[in-house]
């Protein structure tokens, strides 16, 4: 069984995946209480599903982009488990999870998450024979700035507030907005991507796996 953990944003996600089924999946919004909630939630999920940590043979974790505190909580937790239980670890870029849950289309895809202070982190994906493929690094912008960049038909999927949706809907000819339910970043999808990477032998080093932080001010002096 693989355990997947995503604490990139205010949304926390946990999933168990065994290659054929998702025995347990948990998603909720936390008001910056990731530290207090993560471990008890995992204990609760394992108990409810009726398995112990001994059944967990690999760990998947979302590595961002995301906010400092929340990402740090998830990565520290997963690295602790990896080192203590000698488990393989797989880090997955957070926006890849968003993209993987969107059915492939001939349009390009903007995968987004909330970057704080009313901004979005936006990663661009194009359709290929093997699924969505990222091109270019994720950048932060407001929904209004994203709306202005869009000149061709795209799909926008991910964490969007009602205001973001309203703003992007102005480009209704070119923007197809994924529904709120489809926009949920599912830990089960993270688990599946991580499982496939694990099966392919592409695991990460716990010591060097680093999160992708979102910076609040552009061009900070070092």
């Amino acid at each position: 069984m693989l355990l997947a953990i995503d604490t990139s944003t205010a949304q926390i996600g946990l999933a168990l995946y065994d290659g054929a089924t998702v025995p347990g999946e948990l998603v909720w919004q936390s008001r910056a209480h990731h530290t207090e909630q993560l471990a008890p939630a995992l204990a609760g999920l394992l108990e409810r599903v009726g398995v112990t940590m001994d059944s967990v043979k690999a760990l998947g974790v979302a590595i961002g982009p995301g906010s400092f505190t929340s990402l740090r909580v998830g990565l520290a937790f997963v690295k602790g488990l990896t080192l203590a239980r000698h488990l393989p670890l797989i880090g997955i870029p957070t926006l890849d999870i968003v993209a993987a849950s969107v059915p492939l289309s001939d349009r390009k895809l903007a995968a987004v998450l909330q970057a704080g202070r009313g901004r979005l982190a936006v990663g661009w994906y194009k359709p290929t024979g093997s699924g969505w493929q990222a091109y270019g690094p994720a950048t932060t912008m407001t929904a209004g700035e994203l709306e202005k960049k869009i000149r061709k038909p795209v799909i926008v999927c991910g964490e969007l507030t009602a205001e973001d949706r309203h703003c992007l809907a102005r480009k209704f000819k070119n923007v197809r907005l994924a529904s709120p339910a489809q926009c949920v970043r599912r830990p089960g999808v993270l688990a599946e991507i991580a499982w496939n990477r694990w099966q392919a032998g592409k695991t990460d080093e716990a010591a060097s796996l680093a999160p992708i932080y979102l910076h609040v001010a552009g061009g900070l002096p070092a």
Binding site: A10, H33, S67, F68, T69, R117, Y213, V216, A217, L220
Partner: peptide
Amino acid sequence: LGEAEELDLDALLARGPLLIEWPERVEPI
């Protein structure tokens, strides 16, 4: 500023009000 940014003021603001002393040192963030 990088060090101040890592303290994640946004996360603190999500949990309640935030008071900052010597704010002029971190004004850009």
